[in-house]
Each structure stands twice: as structure tokens, then as C-alpha cells.
Design a protein around this nucleic acid. Sequence first.
DNA 1: AAAAAAG
Length: 786
Amino acid sequence: MPKNKKPQGGRPARNFDPSYAKAGSKKPGSRSAGHRGYRPEETDSPAKTRWSRDERVAAGRAPHRGEREGREPHDDRAPRAGGERGGRSYDRNDRAPRSFDRNDRSDRAPRSSDRDDRGPRREYGDRPARPHYREDRPARSFDRDDRAPRRFDRDERPARSNDRDDRAPRRDRDDRPARSYDRSDRPARSFDRDDRAPRREYGDRPARSNDRSDRPARSYDRSDRPARSYDRSDRPARSFDRNDRNDRSDRPARSFDRDDRAPRRDRDDRPARSFDRNDRPARSFDRNDRPARSFDRDDRAPRRDFERPGFRDSERRPSSFYPAKNTEAHFTPADDVVLERLEADAIQADAVDGVSFADLGLGGNVVRVLKELGAESPFPIQAATIPVVLEGRDVLGRGKTGSGKTIAFGAPTVERLMTLWAESGKSGGKRQMGRKPRALILAPTRELALQIDRTVQPIAQSVGLFTTQIYGGVPQGRQVGALQRGVDIVIGTPGRMEDLIEQRRLDLSEVVITVIDEADHMCDLGFLEPVQRIIRHTAEGGQKLLFSATLDQGVATLVDEFLVEPAVHEVAGEDQASSTIDHRVFVIENRDKRDIVAELANRDGKTLVFSRTRAFAEDLTNHLEDYGIRAVALHGDLNQSRRTRNLQQLTSGRVNVLVATDVAARGIHVDDIDLVIQADAPDEYKTYLHRSGRTGRAGKQGRVVTLIPRNRQRRMNELLDRAEIDIDFVDVRLGDDLLGELEGGLAAVAAEVTEVEAETVEVEATEVEVVEVDADNAESDEVLAS
DNA sequence: AAAAAAG
């Protein structure tokens, strides 16, 4: 049956058919209380009317409602709880039936995920009914007996007993100790992180101060460090045995005990190390005289100018693209190893001058399309990875946010498919029906998959290859249709990909190039296993490309299982925190958060606001609109068409403010976002870097403001340490000139950048350093989890 | 907590 058609005749699909819930329908959505999509026959408030500000205040949604002490008011909790809201009955029994399923918002009048389409019930009504809407809920404490009669047609649900009495065990709520939704009487729950037991451990660490200024002399002066050799051969024997990976015994005095971590901060007691370029054993950038590269570059005709023997730095012109950096002070990570066993090739940012895409080995058609896409000449990460991908090698690519990674893997993937095709003698043919995909690109979010396709599709088309998007949230019909017609490159997200594989509509057995974008994130819990399963469906021995701005140890699992002698490439001295992004941290009163966000967003220019939860993203969006600021939301509670539309509204400039969860943290490119506001601070430094990376793209200026409550300063400090960002916090209050405060930070940028770069270099310089950063991270995650 | 599947 055609996927997009409503079933003919009968009524089997009523609950699954969105059209039943559409506007204008006399009996919209579900007609039963507590059911998704439920709409009462006629309500006292007109369906499409937004709450006035007063109403919001009454409901506790407007600013300045009192926050309880010790509670970190993630405002997203309020709508569910409701017990503390003024002007509202606290007696649960006189409330209309209310769902506490956070996903079921059907009965919430004022909350809508749809900015333009205010009828919340309609909003959720077009989702297919959840079959287990009741069974999977934990016991609830409110009395159902006063509920309005349930109105759905019971006849349609045969197997279900309508006799409430026989459901006693689940229904009888009186035997539970009074559960209250009034937050004030919850005993042991505190949102004050400082009084959580495990966190206390931080308190007895010795020399850790949040005052950055009183840190024990941390020197960024490269010259004052005693000579450290980068000659690998003189490092204390380090095991590269994979099985030995976790054996850190060969590392010098490393402790994971936080209590004695202090020594690590003191960099003076490190074994002789120098960042003085001049005292390093002669390092050559001439690839031809590198000793131990596992692949032989010498037998390639030198395609790149900078590969030519004898090519010197002085022959390079300064990059016109990357903002002027002090290359003199720049450390060049020679043997920077990001991942164990892997040697990272660092390409100089200015090494690409005079190099063209054609020089890198791309064909005429591809080069022409790249030009049309606005890519005239390669960015460093592209220059670094394209030739290697074309060689057929596995590649790990790390380039900062906005540095052009999509083309870095997209263009050579297309070119390589053509090469392979030619080699197999099949080239030049027309599109063959049912042709199986030969390349696969995986991304963590639908928006990113879409965006990648927008770049790759034209490149592929230029040489007669076809792409299709395989992601969820939309009917699969089109996708399956495309697969049946024959597709060369599939681009999508893991869920739908697996779904179609299971349905045997997607056959990856001929996929010889697999790209994992945001690879480190794709190795996170919840993503890793699906990704592994999908890759296992691809052709054995196929080429694998892993890319991310924050590529780190996290991808080891994938690397171990799927990659063979991967080449690791990155851009030298590059750091997300450097150069074009001005970072600010405002210490605020939590109750002022939404107002402060509003004041910061109340400006010209595109602003992206990050929230930790979907609910708070909604809340903030509402709040901004109350301020008269046009804003839309982007998060997983919205259906896909709305997600796409809302993002499009920011891209097109119809709205200037997008409030998003971390769905928008990675990869999403919107031109000219010049301010990122983190309404909730991220938990991971990598998240910080990716969120920040939505601004300051392609060398443009950008600003990032992170709002934190007083009690988060220490955590934030630690996070910024890992992100290699050194900035001071600013106490701000609601009345302050916040935008002025924002400007105030600009002067400090230059100095910061220098420092940040120095530190970056340090981390990139040795494995031990990188591992430390990661371990540090993992460690604190552990602590936080406990 | 969020993300990723539901003809």
C-alpha cells in the first residue's frame, strides 16, 4: 500500500491518521481525556488564543515567580509539578484529568510546541496514539474518580476491561504514602549541587580555586620550560599494544585520585618539556623524509605544492581565510597523537594557499560544483583529508567547528566512488534500478543529515550519482522509493537506517565507504551500538571515515573494530575556542534566567539559545515571545516538519532567535549566528565547544554567553579548563546593561586567544596530555553520576 | 537530559 495514502474505507487507522486531528475537524484528535490529542468539546478559552502575560504569571510561567531555596529552578519542571504555582488549586482532585506523562502534553492548554499553531492539542494530536499510554506509566497519585467520563469508544478496544474494580492493585492509590507534587514538601531532593554528597569530595581537594587569578603560577611562556623532547624514541617506553590500552602503568606518576591531582596542575614539575620550537630536534614538514609513516607517500606524484621536497614555510602566503594568527608563536604539533596508536598529521592552516581542489585529486565536475557551493579553494582540513580519502585509506579527521568537514569527506567520497566504479569497468552507465548504495554517511541528528545531503547531493549529481536521505520522523515511502530506483549514497540517522535494514528495504552489503560524522558523539551511549550494527552491515573491508571537531579517545571502539591503519588528520594549532569566538560567563540568579536571556536576545542579529531540556526550550520560547521577541524552538518534542520549518525560519531570517536543545549543538550551520546563549550550562566541555561552534563559523566573529547560577561556578571552571578556555566570570543582575556587558568582553579577546593557543598546543602535543584531559572528564562524569 | 524508528 502506498505509504502516504490514508487507508481506503473502514476505520482501522483512525488513531494513526493525523488528518483526524486536523483543524476544522469537528471531532478532532482523541476524544478521551488523558489521551494524546485530546480536545474537550468546547473549552472556556478559545483554542488558538495565547495566554496573556497575566495568565502566565498566574500559572507561574512568567518571570519572577518565587523560587524555592536550594532548588535549581530548571523551569522545565514547573509545568509538570504545578503545585507551587500561584492562583491555581493545589487540590489535585478538583483538577481536570491531567497527564503526568511528560510526553503527553495533550491536556496542557498553554503549552504548545508549535509557535505558529497554538492549539496544543492539535499539535500532538497528529501523532499516532501511543498504545501503552497507560500501562507504562508509574503509579500516579491523583484520584481518578472525579474525572470526566471517559469518552473514547471502548468498543474499539476489545481486550481491555472496563471494569475499574478489577484493576484495583494498580488503581488504588491510597495505599501509597502520600505522594505530593508540591515541591515544598519533598524532603530529600535538592538541586543545590553543593549539598550533594558525592560532590563534596571536590571540597576537600587541596589547591583548587575557582578564582582563576590565584592559580599557582601557570606559565604559558614556552621558553621557561625545560627542554622537552618530542622525539618519540626517547620517551619512556610506552605501550601501544591494544590489549594494553588500559594499562597506564607505563605512564609517569599518574593518579586518578583527585586528592593528589594538584601536582598535575603544576606544570613545572613535568619532565623536561619545551615549547620552544627552536630547541626541538629537527622537525621536518617535508613528508618525504618522514621516517615511519606506515603508508608510502613517496610513490605518489606530489600533487600538492607544499609536499614538494624542499618546500619551505616561507613560500607560503598567509591564509586569506583564517584570521591572522601569530604563526611565530604557533606550536606545530609534530607527532601529535590524539588517539592511541594513531599518529595525527597536522596540516598548517596556511599550507593550503595556492592549492586547488583539483590539485587534491578531485575531478572537474566535482570541483565545479564545489565552486558553485561557494568552496573556491580547499580549507586546511579538506586539503589534509581529501587526498588520503582518495587513496582509499581509513581516515580520522578533526577540524574545528565550521572548518569545512562536510566537504572534506563528502567530495572525496563521491570522487572515490567514481574511481572504484571506473576500476570495476561499470562506469558510464545510466542509473540502474535497484542499484545498491555504495556509500553511507551517518549523522546524529536529522537536521544534520539533511544538511549533509544538501552539500553532498549536488556533488554526487555532478557525476551522475544519486543520494537519498534516510532519517526518521517522516514517512518512509519516499526513502524506500528512492532506494528501489537505485541510490549510490545514503545519508541519514541510525534509527531509520536500522529500521529499513530490518525491513530489508535497505541493503548496505555493497557499501564500500562509510562516513561517521560527529564520530565521537556517535560513540556515546545510545548511539554506539546502533552505529556498530549498521556498520556491520556494510561490506567487509570497506573504507571508513570518522570526522568530528572533538574527535577523541571515545571513538576507539569503532576504530578498533572497523578501521585499518587509519590516517589521522587535523589542523595544526587549531582550537574551537580560539580566534573568532568571544566567550563570556555570566553568573546570575536562577530566577532571572529567562529575563536575562530575553534581554540578551533582544537585539539585531541571529541568536541561538541552548537549553538543557525540551520543556525549558519551549518555556523560554514562550517567554521571549512575551517580550515581543520573535522566537522559535527546535527540539525533539516537535514533529519533523516543524523542526525543519523552525530551523529554516532562523536560516531565512524570518526569526532572529532559535531556542534549541542540544539537537542543534552539533554540525548545524546557520549563516551569521553572532550570539550563542547557553541558558543552561552544558555538562560536557565537548558540548560547550560544539554549541559555541554554531557561531564564529568560517572565520567570522561570534560571541558565546553562558549563564550559570552561583553554585555552578566550580563546575563551570572545570569545564572551561577542559575546553581550554580561560575567562573570568561576571556577576550580572537583571537591571544591568547586559548587552553592554557583552561588548565589554571584546577587548580581552586578543589576550585570551594567545593564551588559549598556548594551552591547546600543550594538550595536543602528547598523548599523555590528551589522555589526561579525557580521564579528567570521565572522572568527573563518574563523580557526577554517583 | 537529549538524541535516534514506528505503513
